[in-house]
Write a protein that binds this DNA or RNA. Structure first.
Lengths: 160, 160
DNA sequence: AGTGAAACAAATTCTCT
DNA sequence: AGAGAATTTGTTTCACT
């Protein structure tokens, strides 16, 4: 359900600020939206309750964790039967280093984002992990040379 | 600097739990890693201080915000001069609905992820926003039919 | 819906082991 | 390094506007 119509400018501001820093105290948040703590607190809880805020997370540095390679891998399935598609999607969910997966238009069926320690590690992943998913027909790996932007920030301005 | 060698199993566990839910109290976190609050607190602060945790964020539901269309857009630049590349990257940073941008290998130079309210909105974005960035040579838009996975979760298991 | 204070819980610091 | 108590700070509720 899309009902951002029920959000006012203050709610929008709160979503903006909490995306930038969810460790901000209610007091500080209140100051930034020019309200006192209780209505600010109540608004935040409402945004959580109604699902605008799905959860809170720590943003971890992948370089620090030794993941220096990101690959955008385009995948075509062998056949497009319901069972094969479901099997592929289930497998994707279970593999930690696949952090994103989209069903796409165009020449391929899916695009996944894969984190690897280095090229050797990605090669191992392709051969041993992807290579064992037998519903996969063909692959095309696009290597990320540089991360320009990875904002984790959903735009929240009002629809016009 | 990649020194996840300095992390022990408890640190790894903390990173895992805080990615799943950064609103967990230190007390609860402590219970899950079988330590008392003070060393758990000190470990969390250390992970922040040393940059393993970059920041904390609220994960916002894009559907709730009226963004029902995601597009992976591949971009080729007209020329590959330093200035033109810099200009493109600066522009990308300034546009909120472009949430990710990667410099890539292959036929195109960049892939961006774009959020739009609907197809009409994406068309407007292509014509008016991308259309005005004159360093862009050509475009290829891949429409996302379905989101299978968007975990925002950096794999944190120990390198072997 | 908002304010301000009161009650409660969590974060942070400190001392000891 | 880690435990546990003491202190400080933030969260949550409530009575009032």
């Amino acid at each position: 359900m899309t009902n951002q119509e029920s959000l006012d400018e203050t709610d929008i501001k709160i979503l903006k600020l909490l995306q930038q820093n969810s460790h901000m105290t209610v007091k500080e948040l209140a100051a930034r939206v020019h309200l006192s703590t209780s209505p600010t607190f109540e608004r935040q809880k409402r945004l959580e309750r109604e699902g605008y805020i799905k959860r809170y997370t720590a943003v971890v540095d992948h370089h620090k964790m030794g993941h220096n390679v990101i690959v955008l891998c385009n995948i075509r399935l062998k056949q497009h039967t319901h069972d094969l598609i479901q099997q592929f999607m289930d497998t994707v969910q279970s593999i930690d280093r696949i952090t994103e997966c989209y069903n796409t238009t165009g020449d391929y069926d899916f695009q996944i984002k894969v984190y690897a320690h280095d090229m050797k590690d990605y090669q191992d992943f392709m051969l041993n992990t992807l290579g064992n998913i037998d519903c996969i027909g063909s692959l095309h790996s696009i290597i990320v040379i540089g991360e320009i932007k990875d904002s984790h920030y959903i735009p929240v301005s009002k629809k016009r």
